[in-house]
Design a protein around this nucleic acid. Structure first.
Lengths: 323, 323
DNA sequence: CTGTTAGCGCGTTCAA
DNA sequence: TTGAACGCGCTAACAG
């Protein structure tokens, strides 16, 4: 592998001069400059980023931690990486499979100076065990959390969910079931606030039986479906905390001949690819912009120049799973 | 940041000794060993991988190139990364968005010694422009290609497709439509061979109109649906080259009130998450094993010890889109 | 404007 | 069994 020294020899200059034209840092006469450029060309010189990084202490890469390849991840990751690339950053992806130890290993990459910052789509460990890592570099997450040591690209589900519920009300739905995510999640709490307020305001009875905490994992939606099938007092509609769980729900009830919206209304949340494919009505809250903001935060912490943040808005996507 | 020298001072030994206990390479007395271990503990020493990599010329990371987030990617990536992690490798993901230049940049990571090897899920550039990169490290791909300089984790679609077509025949289908991928793709050619043979053998007429080359991109399946809707002489069933395109097809026809299998049979290919969600009958050809084999190849090229390869098999997943 | 020198943090001879 | 010294490839401070 050709090094900077080979180029220097070939060009008949010192390696510092080569380094100067490489980084365009400092003065180099046009003559030497051309000689160096020519030599690099002839030798087919490629700078070794590793050496550069060791020297500068900066890797220009961001770690991206996710539990698994969920459908929401696709869109998010794509936008995140695009922003990264456009701003000269690489992305290291860590799929933990929900394994706490693996998440720790990924976080260690920050300690080990293998990445400059880390984005955690969805955490697996407690926040308390994650917190110490913030001393090694900037952290950001998709989870909703309000702490000074980590950025959260959250949108206030309170607003979005209230909007969604009012929408269901306007469409004539009165027996509304709610499928929520992890109860410790701040977004879940926000949704809880929203629905409580909604039921009081509209004087719509809230059936506790239809306030479900779905397992925040694969097939959580299918379990809700099973519960729904067995129940006697069925709601008219389910408002889900994610498109994925909504899709699983529909998939499961279709297995035994039920249909949405005929037998049960379904409203998702995310507007991801699956919901489009399956015609699931859902609420869009610009996942792309969240991804963009997440990277922007990390970038801004790491650099002098600042990337702008984008404003988030909710939008109801009318499709076919609501009457 | 604590370095090996800080540890050495604290332990009252030289940095070489520290290095020795770190790499468990060479002789170290149990006494010094304990002193070093203790010092590392107290200081909270973390080795700098960058320096290590610069020294060894090895990064222990594999580049993973994909055009964009496709549903097949998820499963594949997950297994690939799991294998990588289990064998001490990291994975750098590059999403090119189908941009040739971006793919080149990703390939350059191999030249720049930022990754030890590269896996290309689906190429964007010509093979001819990719080939030169094989001199910098091992290459593998999911595309089907038979060249000595790159490993292809392909399965022979000929066999799988023939099996699928016979299955359709047995279920009573006679007017069979074929939706194929990129015609230059070797798998497509294999499928073409299979279907030609099938139609001759079974004496089933092959309607050229229903031999479709779907755009190998997003919404290719929707375009097939539009064509199907407008046509007069409709086939009884479509055999798709991927679950994704099959899903798009179904999604699109449902939009205007048609259903599978009532109005048209649908057979996918991949057995990915979407096909399960939408109950699409499909053929499984162990994507996981392909992913596993792909990593195994890369690993084996890079290391002395060898990982075993797994045998691939086709399996028909009966679901609900066939009568 | 340019060359010399000193690191970045670590692994690895080579003597001792 | 250990330490000194060198090198991985590059950047940056310093002197000229």
């Amino acid at each position: 592998m050709a090094t900077i020294i080979d180029v220097a020899k070939k060009a008949g200059v010192s390696k510092s001069t080569v380094s100067r034209v490489l980084t365009s840092n400092g003065y180099v006469s046009e003559v030497s400059r051309q000689k160096v450029l020519l030599a690099m060309e002839e030798i087919g010189y490629i700078p070794n980023l590793l050496a550069r990084q060791l020297q500068s202490g900066v890797t220009k890469t961001i770690g991206f931690i996710a539990p698994s390849y969920m459908s929401a991840l696709g869109k998010f990751l794509q936008v995140f990486m695009e922003n990264a690339k456009n701003n000269g950053y690489y992305v290291n992806l860590y799929l933990t499979g929900g394994d706490k130890q693996k998440e720790i290993e990924a976080l260690n990459q920050l300690k080990y100076k293998q990445v400059d910052g880390i984005f955690i789509l969805t955490r697996t460990n407690d926040w308390e065990t994650i917190k110490p890592y913030s001393q090694y570099g900037p952290l950001a997450t998709w989870n909703r959390i309000e702490e000074p040591w980590i950025y959260s690209s959250y949108v206030d589900h309170y607003e979005g969910y209230l909007k969604a519920l009012n929408y269901l009300y306007d469409r004539g739905y009165r027996k509304i079931g709610h499928v929520l995510g992890n109860m410790e999640n701040l977004n879940t709490k926000a949704r809880l606030r929203a629905l409580t307020e909604f039921h009081e305001l509209k004087q719509v009875p809230l059936n506790e039986e239809w306030l479900i905490e779905a397992a925040y994992n694969k097939n959580g939606g299918r379990e809700v479906a099973k519960k729904w099938l067995e129940s006697l007092d069925k709601p008219d509609v389910f408002a889900f905390y994610s498109d994925q769980s909504a899709a699983e729900f529909i998939s499961e009830i279709e297995l035994v001949g039920f249909k949405s919206p005929e037998d049960i209304g379904v409203l998702g949340f995310d507007n991801n690819e699956v919901s489009e494919l399956m015609h699931i009505s859902t609420v869009d809250y610009s996942l792309e912009k969240q991804a963009s903001n997440s990277f922007a935060y990390l970038y801004n912490q790491l650099n002098e120049d600042q990337l702008p943040f984008e404003q988030l808005v909710f939008e109801l996507m009318e499709r076919k799973t609501l009457k």
